[in-house]
Design a protein around this nucleic acid. Structure first.
Lengths: 211, 211
DNA sequence: GTATGTGAACTATTTCACAGCT
DNA sequence: AGCTGTGAAATAGTTCACATAC
C-alpha cells in the first residue's frame, strides 16, 4: 500500500470489476486469477500484482470470491457511492456519453448537459436536462457535480474547462483534441480518439511494407 | 530505427502533428522542441527522443521546420495517403465518430456505417451511407475499407468484430466495453471510455480522504 | 549562446519464482 | 496438487548529460 500505484493498474481495476460482474452473473461464485486474466487477455501475474497494491483479497489454493472482490474493487475505485457528472457539449458525442448506461451502472450519474445551441437547450430527457452555458454555476452547485466531461469542438474546449473549474468542478474528462490548461489540483484525464485512431494507420502502413 | 518503438511514442506523434499544424497556421515556420513540448505539456527530452526513433528532422541550434516535420510525421504515421474506414453501430457514438471532422483531416475517411435498426439504414448523409449488416462484405470489398470502428453495445461487439474480420478488415478500433477475440494479424486498439472515466473516481476518492 | 540527437542513467512497470496456505 | 501474494529479476520507458552543429 506504500508503493506508488501505476495509473494503468487503476484503469485495469475497472476491467476486473466488469469481468467479475459478468462471472458472478453467468457462472461461478469463485474465480481464479488465471481464469479472470485469460478472459481479459492479460497475464495472471499482472492481475494478482495489481490487486496486491491494495491488500489481500483471495484465498490461497482456492481463488477469489466474485462478490467479495467486486465489493473490494468498488471500495478501491470509490464506486461504493454515487458521483455526479455533467457533459459540456451536447452534440453526437455529448449525447452518446449522456445516455451511456455503463457510467450509470458504475455509479457515475450524468445530471446535466450544457450547450450553446438554442435548439438543444431547455430540453428534458428522462434523467437529464440540457442547459445553456450560463446556468452552469447554478446547476453544478445545486446538483453537487464533481466531474465535468468535455465533448465540445476543440476551439471551445479551453473555455469549457475554465468555466468548469471556476464552477468548482474537481475532475475533468476531456474528449476534445486539445491539451487543457487547468489548475494542478484538478484531476484531468484526456481521451483523444483521433490520436488513438491514427496510431492504427501507423501499424497498417508497417504491415504493408513488411509484406 | 532498430530499437523497439513504444506504442506511446506512436500516439504522441499524432499529438505532435496536430500541434505542428496549429503552429504552422498560427505562428511560425520554425519551432523548437522546447516550445512544442511546452504547448503539449510534455518534456522536450521526450519529444526529441520520440522523433529520434525515426531519424533526424531538425537543425541543431535552430529547431524544426514546421512544414517539413509535418510531412515527416505524416510519412511515419502513414497519413500521406487516404485510409477508408467504416463504423459498426450507428447510435449516438457511431454517429459522433462518423461525422467527426478530425479523422477526415488526418486522411481517415469513413465511407460507410452499419446498423441493424431498420429506421437507421439506407439513409444517405453527405459523405456516408448507412447499410444493414448483411451488406457489410459487399461494401467493405467495394470501398476497399481497411479499418473497422466498433460502436455497438457490448453484447453485439464480439459478433461485429467477427463479421469485420471475415469481410477482410485489417484493423479494428473498438469502443465497446469488451475484450475482443480477433486473429492475431488483425491490429486491434481498444478505447474503453467507461474504464477511463472510472479511474477519475479513484483519484476523487483519494483527494477526499487526504483532506 | 542556442538547439538537436543520442547513449547512458534512472525510473517505472511487468514478469518471474517461489514461499505459504487450502 | 492448486492457487494466492510478493520480493526480486527483467524489461520497458523516460529523463539526463553532453557531444555536435548553427
Amino acid at each position: 500500500m506504500l508503493k506508488k500505484i501505476p495509473e494503468e493498474t487503476i484503469v485495469r481495476l475497472s476491467y476486473y470489476l466488469r469481468a467479475l460482474l459478468y462471472f458472478k452473473e453467468k457462472e461461478t461464485p469463485i474465480i481464479s486469477s488465471k481464469r479472470l486474466a485469460d478472459f481479459l487477455k492479460i497475464s495472471h501475474h499482472q492481475l494478482r500484482k495489481d490487486l496486491s497494491y491494495f491488500g489481500q483479497f483471495g484465498r490461497k489454493g482456492v481463488g477469489y470470491s466474485c462478490s467479495k472482490l467486486i465489493e473490494s474493487i468498488r471500495d478501491i475505485l470509490g464506486l461504493n457511492r454515487e458521483w455526479s457528472a455533467c457533459v459540456v457539449g451536447f452534440g453526437n458525442l455529448g449525447r452518446a456519453l449522456s445516455f451511456y448506461r455503463g457510467f450509470k451502472d458504475e455509479g457515475i450519474i450524468i445530471r446535466a448537459a450544457f450547450d450553446i445551441n438554442e435548439n438543444k437547450i431547455n430540453k428534458d430527457y428522462p434523467h437529464l436536462k440540457v442547459y445553456s452555458l450560463d446556468k452552469m454555476e447554478k446547476v453544478i452547485k445545486k446538483e453537487n457535480i464533481q466531474i465535468g466531461i468535455i465533448a465540445v469542438p476543440k476551439t471551445a474546449a479551453e473555455e469549457a474547462a475554465k468555466k468548469l473549474c471556476t464552477c468548482g468542478i474537481k475532475a475533468i474528462f476531456n474528449l476534445a483534441p486539445v491539451k487543457l490548461d487547468v489548475p494542478k489540483e484538478i484531476i484531468l484525464k484526456d481521451v483523444d480518439l483521433s490520436c488513438q485512431l491514427t496510431s492504427l494507420t501507423y501499424h497498417l502502413k508497417n504491415l504493408e511494407t513488411k509484406q
